[in-house]
Computed example of a mutant assay.
Amino acid sequence: MWLAAVVAIVASLMVTTKIRTLFRGRRGGRLTTTPPAAVTVGGDSTITTYTSGRDLFADMLAAIDGAQERVLFESFIVKGDEVGQKFKAALIAAADRGVDVRVVYDGFANLVVRPSFFRFPPRVRVLRFPVLAGRWQIFNPRRYGRDHRKILVVDDTAAFVGGYNIGSEYETQWRDTHLKIEGSAVWDLDNAFVDFWNLNEARPRLADHGSPSWDPHVRAHRNVPRQLVFPVRGMYLEAIDRATDHIYLTAAYFIPDHDILRALLDARRRGVEIRILMPEVSNHVVADWLSRGFYGRMLDAGVRIFLYQDAMVHAKTATIDGRWCTVGTANIDRLSLTGNYEINMEIHDADLAAHLERVFEHDLTQARELTREEWSSRWVVVKICEALLRPLRPLL
Rank of each mutant, 00 (worst) to 15 (best):
Y105A: 02
A94C: 07
V194G: 01
P279D: 01
A93K: 08
A63Q: 09
A58R: 15
D300Y: 12
A220R: 00
S291D: 03
G53S: 10
F129L: 07
R26K: 12
V7M: 14
L72W: 10
Y253A: 03
V6M: 10
C385F: 06
G28V: 07
E171S: 09
R219Y: 08
H314R: 05
V131E: 13
L111H: 07
D59N: 15
D81P: 04
G134C: 03
Q173L: 15
A301K: 06
P36W: 13
S184T: 13
I92D: 08
N331T: 05
F160S: 05
R358P: 04
I151Y: 06
H148D: 01
F160G: 01
V78K: 10
I343L: 14
G53A: 11
I347S: 01
I181L: 15
T51Y: 01
R26N: 09
I305K: 03
N191M: 08
V6Y: 03
P216R: 13
T157N: 10
N223D: 11
E238Y: 14
V103N: 00
M312R: 06
I305F: 08
A4R: 15
L91Q: 05
K88P: 02
L228W: 12
A38N: 09
V126Y: 05
Y308V: 02
R125Q: 14
L91W: 08
D155H: 08
E342W: 04
L395S: 14
